[in-house]
Design a protein around this nucleic acid. Sequence first.
DNA 1: CCCATTCATGAATATGTGTTCATATATTAA
DNA 2: TTAATATATGAACACATATTCATGAATGGG
Lengths: 116, 116
Amino acid sequence: MTDTCLCKLISADEIDDIKAALPGPGVIAKLAEFFKVFGDPSRITLLYYLSKRELCVADLASLAGMGQSAVSHQLKILRLSRLVKTRKEGTVVYYSLDDEHIQKLFDVALQHVEEA
Amino acid sequence: MTDTCLCKLISADEIDDIKAALPGPGVIAKLAEFFKVFGDPSRITLLYYLSKRELCVADLASLAGMGQSAVSHQLKILRLSRLVKTRKEGTVVYYSLDDEHIQKLFDVALQHVEEA
DNA sequence: CCCATTCATGAATATGTGTTCATATATTAA
DNA sequence: TTAATATATGAACACATATTCATGAATGGG
């Protein structure tokens, strides 16, 4: 056990304060799950196209250069994360964005990425 | 091939416009990599603690309830993503945040998560 | 009613990822 | 130098995940 460290001289009070303000495990898990959805190039691409206009599955596949099944699987993840919504017209399902925060997230991330 | 869809009646011009505005594959990959870093509960926890104060590896491990090695591995990822920076004092390495956007990202994500 | 089309879904597979264990590196003290 | 401590690193393992393939479900046309 090498877990003894001089810098542990944070006061017990301060430790308690910091730990108390930590979001619960449930919230942390949800945060991670949320970010994980954005952590895939295919989903980023789909979200980008949907940020431009409502699109059906086949067109998304065509635009993104992905197979129909792959798109469908990814759209399910985006649906479960409440990032996109659907509108059905006959056999065609139109997808569109369902979250006004997405563009803001992209902007912040782009800022970081471009600060290379 | 079942990739023929009526809704493909987007004009060729519109398709070109949308595709032209798509960030290049490099940028999309970087965006995904960036978000992926936040897509893990351990890293979220470490970032949270570092948002409170500078901390050494052993204390981070203790606070987060993780092994020293696991923390070190995750800190390396955060370092390579330029999200944290280090300061060495003897054998002790102090970590602290190195990006002013992190809190903003957390805020947006929390908003989404809490809109359940 | 039968068929074609669009999308969803389950299984299989290949790849990626987080933790642990053991060990190496670096710094300080004796 | 030797020993001790803090951190970093590499290999191994277990687990998650993205895609493909095959197929199922739903809708509309003939």
